[in-house]
Design a protein around this nucleic acid. Structure first.
Lengths: 220, 220
DNA sequence: TGTACATCAGTGAACGCGCGTTCACTGATGTAC
DNA sequence: TGTACATCAGTGAACGCGCGTTCACTGATGTAC
């Protein structure tokens, strides 16, 4: 197995330029959203000629698409680690109080929603890129193999399954519920970032979020 | 009062270039979304030099902002006329069957949601512009005086008030409910246009929409 | 192990494009006398 | 009613910019013998 030596200074061959370009472009998107995704600037940041990028991407759109997937992977990671953190807290306190499976499942759903929203607010540039008009939504086939197909969609689905198992959610209402739950949370994020809710102060926003999450859980 | 003679051919003075530019740019946005909002192209379509635009807008962003407001006005109009059409149907059938105020109010809320979604699907370019990252959301002060401040927000608020009046919605849950309802419907639109729901066929999309609207109304 | 050579992954210069914006200008409009 | 003139709303040419993309090239890498 070849060891990839990253950024060996002065090296003619970069080592892993493709990944480096995706990294740099992700940073651009982070700072300036979809409009900041500029192939030349990414190459500049990596310290490479713009033409070099064309050995790794057919065109700008392919680079853009790769960054879009990266953004989604970051979102997925945040959702997963939020659940994991939740789990740790629960394990640590398990002797002090016994919590029912129903409450646990409900809490996990809420955690997922909060993770989604905090991604949107912490990383508005990446969020806008991921859910913006440019480029297509990655299909299951085009998704990165490292994800094990575990996009936001699947994580949400698992937690909804837990709700069914905990008898919180009637099984007949389970199918397709991902869409509804996702839409509600996504709508809050979108309206807060670029819509009529953009001017809300943090307190008001917090209220809306609590209310929306409550509404989803109650709506089960 | 001066009669504005639109597009008198060969006229040096245009008459109402400002409006004409907004019209042309709206057409651009309709066809290509936010990225298609290009000052020079709008001037070209109107048949005027690009520099002329600077007698009416300080810069490209102001033009963009005006078109954003136009898009919102169109959305508002669609919502209003959907309600009006509903009303007509109801008046026409009023002798055949008596419907309770509660059902009427619920139906009006559903109508509003459908109008919002049909705007998103019929006019994706305008929808993306209106709710996209570029430009700020128009505040009450900057809104066009012709609207009488009746944006989507206020129409929705009125219908929610009707629900309270009809005893469908407990008054204590009324305040701020606009946000929740709007977010849910907006989320469906956004995810269907540019998100993971983009690949759904029309039938599946229709199901999601029905379900989401039902969920809002049930959640009251 | 050493060498010839195909392939890979870079370079740097250039192309064409279209954009937003500015400038000095000029033709039309409307008002004061 | 006619005329001088300030103001308004256009013109067309130009500027500078930065982009995506292509091209002929060259240095590095790794493989076959």
């Amino acid at each position: 197995m070849k060891v990839v030596d990253v950024a060996k200074p002065g090296a003619y061959h970069h080592g892993d330029l493709r990944d480096a370009l995706i990294d740099a472009t992700t940073a651009l998107a982070r700072e300036g959203g979809p409009d900041a995704v500029v192939l030349r600037e990414a190459a500049r940041r990596v310290g490479v000629s713009a033409a070099a990028a064309y050995h790794h991407f057919a065109n700008r759109d392919q680079l853009n698409q790769a960054v879009k997937q990266r953004a989604l992977a970051i979102l997925t990671g945040r959702m997963q680690s939020a659940l994991a953190e939740d789990e740790q807290v629960r394990v640590r306190h398990r002797n002090r109080q016994r919590i029912g499976a129903a409450d646990v499942a409900r809490h996990r759903l809420r955690t997922l929603g909060l993770a989604y929203l905090s991604f949107a607010f912490d990383e508005p540039g990446l969020f806008r890129l991921a859910f913006g008009p440019r480029g297509s939504w990655p299909t299951r086939e085009s998704a990165s193999p490292h994800d094990h197909n575990a996009g936001p969609f699947l994580i949400l689905g698992q937690v909804l399954d837990e709700l069914v198992a905990a008898c919180v959610l009637p099984p007949e209402r389970r199918p397709g519920l991902e869409y509804i739950a996702w839409a509600e949370v996504h709508g809050v994020a979108a309206l807060c970032l670029d819509g009529p809710l953009a001017q809300l102060d943090l307190v008001a926003r917090r209220q809306i979020i609590d209310r929306a999450l409550g509404s989803i859980i109650r709506g089960l």
